[in-house]
Computed example of a mutant assay.
Amino acid sequence: MEKQIIAFIESLKGDKRLSSLDEASTKQAIIIKMLSLLGWDIFNVDEVKPDLVVKSYMVDYALRKNKFNTVFIGVNKAGEELRKDQKEILASAISEGVKLVLVTNGFQWWFYLSFQEGVAEQRKVCAVDLHRQKPEEAASRLISLLEKGNVTSGNALKKAETMQEARQTRAVDRYLSEAWQGLMKRPPDVLVKLINEAFEKLSGYPAEGKVIKKYLGLWARGEACEEIIELKEPVAKAPASYEGRKIQSFNFKSHSHSVDSWDRFLTRLCGLLASEFSEDLEKLLWHSVDGKFIFRDNPEELRLPLNIDGTNIFVETALNPDDTVKVARSVLKLFGYEGSELDIALTK
C-alpha cells in the first residue's frame, strides 16, 4: 500500500494538468483514487458515502464503519487555496458526532479534530502538502490518519489526538515564556492590584503601583531587583464599630473625598457610582440590605430621604454609622467592587 501511495503522489506532482481541474474532476482524479489506495471500497456507499447532506450543508464524502459516519471530507478544486475558516464542515461533524475531519484540494490535506475547543486553526491536527513534503513523509501521514484499518479501529483518531497534544505542547514551549515576559513588562492594573493586596497583607503597607510595575519589569528581564519598595503610609484597620465616631473623609478608587457627615458620605459615594453606572442605576431600587429597601424613587417611602446627586433616586439616611457603612459596602458589591476598595478616615 505505502509504495503505491508514494508512486501516486509522485505522479501527481509531475502532472501539470491537474492544477486546472474543477471540483468534480479533482474528486475523480485524486480523492477517489487516494481513498481506494488507502483501502476504502469506493463503490460501497456504506463505506464511502458521497454528497451527505447534514442539515443545509453538503459533506463531499463521509467515511463509514457499519453505516456510521467516522470521518467527514470536504473537497475543493485542485489548486484552490483552502480557507482557514472551516466552521461549516466542523459544525456538521459535531452535530453528527464525527470527531475527525479532512479538508483537501487534492494537494493539501488538512486534518481537524472537530470537538476540540477554539477556532478552526486551533483544531487543526496536521497539514499534509503533497507539493512540499517528501512523498514518503506524506504517504506515512495519510496512512496513519486515513487508511481504512486505522480509521475503523480507532487508531487514526488516537493518532490525531496525540498529534494535537504534541502540537499544543510545542506551542506552550515556544510562546508561553514570551507571553509571560510581555505581561511582566506591561502588567495590567488588575495584576498590580492583586500583587499589592498580597504585599500589604504581609507588610501592613501598600506600595506604589508604578514601583510594582518597575519591579516586575526588572524581574522579567532577569535583572537584579534591588529596588526598595516605596511604601505608602499604613492603612488603618477598620474599627469594630463606627458608632459614636465622626467621619472626616473616604477614599475610593485612589481618590479622597472630604465629607462632614455620615449622610453626606453615603450620598456622595452613591453619586460617584451614579456617574459611572448611569444606565444600571435603577437596580438600586431593587437592592435590599438586611431585608430593607434603602433606595426609592418616591421619597415618601423613606423616613429621612436624601437625593443622590444627579438622579431621581433617594436614599434612606435614618441609619446609624455602622448600618451606613454596611449599606455603602453592599452597594459597592452590587456594582462589582470589593468592599476593601473603600477606606474611611475618622476624625481623631
Rank of each mutant, 00 (worst) to 15 (best):
Ile5Glu: 00
Ile9Gly: 01
Arg17Asp: 13
Asp22His: 09
Ser25Asn: 13
Gln28His: 11
Ile30Phe: 03
Gly39Ile: 04
Ile42Glu: 03
Asn44Gln: 07
Met58Lys: 15
Ala62Gln: 02
Thr70Lys: 15
Phe72Tyr: 15
Asn76Phe: 13
Gly79Thr: 06
Asp85Asn: 15
Glu88Gly: 00
Ala93Tyr: 00
Ala93Met: 08
Thr104Ser: 15
Thr104Gln: 03
Phe107His: 07
Gln108Pro: 00
Phe111Gln: 02
Tyr112Pro: 02
Leu113Glu: 02
Leu113Ile: 11
Phe115Trp: 06
Glu117Gln: 15
Arg123Gln: 15
Cys126Trp: 02
Ala127Met: 13
Asp129Ser: 14
Pro135Val: 00
Glu136Ala: 14
Glu137Gly: 00
Ala139Phe: 01
Ser140Met: 05
Leu142Pro: 00
Gly149Asn: 14
Asn150Gly: 15
Asn150Trp: 04
Val151Ile: 12
Ser153Asp: 08
Asn155Ile: 03
Ala160Val: 07
Thr162Met: 11
Met163Glu: 13
Gln164Tyr: 12
Arg167Leu: 14
Arg170Trp: 10
Leu176Gln: 13
Glu197Asn: 09
Ala198Val: 06
Tyr205His: 15
Ile212Tyr: 00
Lys213Pro: 02
Lys214Pro: 00
Lys214Asn: 06
Ala224Val: 12
Ile228Trp: 04
Ile229Tyr: 06
Glu230Asn: 04
Glu230Asp: 07
Lys232His: 14
Glu233Ile: 08
Tyr242Asp: 04
Glu243Arg: 14
Gly244Pro: 06
Arg245Gly: 03
Ser256Glu: 14
His257Ser: 08
Ser258Asp: 12
Arg264Val: 11
Thr267Gly: 09
Ala274Asp: 06
Phe277Gly: 04
Ser278Trp: 11
Glu282Tyr: 11
Glu282Val: 08
Trp286Asp: 14
Phe293Ser: 10
Ile294Val: 15
Asn298Arg: 13
Glu301Asn: 11
Arg303Gln: 12
Asn307Ser: 11
Asn307Leu: 15
Asp309Gln: 13
Phe314Arg: 01
Val315Asn: 00
Pro321Leu: 04
Thr324Asn: 06
Thr324Phe: 01
Val325Met: 09
Leu332Pro: 02
Tyr337His: 15
Thr347Phe: 11
